[in-house]
Amino acid sequence: MIVGLAVVVGVVLGLVLQPTVPVDLQPYLPIAVVAALDALFGGVRAWLERIFDEKVFVVSLIGNVLVAALVVFVGDKLGVGGELSTGVVVVLGIRIFSNAAAIRRHLFGA
């Protein structure tokens, strides 16, 4: 319940404020969002499997975001930022899909 409220508040804030992403953060925000989505799906899956732990979720989400941003940052420094961010998105996308498949099995038994 409180999670849903928080999501609504976040969406409304984003729509109302319409903040401009700082130029320095522009390469990292999409990757961070994808990493957070991955952590979110992982958390839902864990919750469905009754092994959800709030501390683990918070740490994994923040860690995911930081690692993803770090990878892209290092990639940019090495001159392979575009390729690395593509790789990160691919890997996270695969994980999101497998988590989504597990969630689907839990909810629909298929």
Binding site: I2, V3, L5, A6, V7, V8, V9, G10, V11, L13, G14, L15, Q18, P19, T20, V21, Q26, L29, P30, A32, V33, A36, L37, L40, G43, E54, K55, F57, V58, L61, I62
Partner: peptide, 21 residues
Amino acid sequence: QTGVAVLCGVLAFALVTQVHS
């Protein structure tokens, strides 16, 4: 669930911001 909620709110905010930009 405060921590989870805050993170989810931030995530939603970031998602909307990114989509918008």
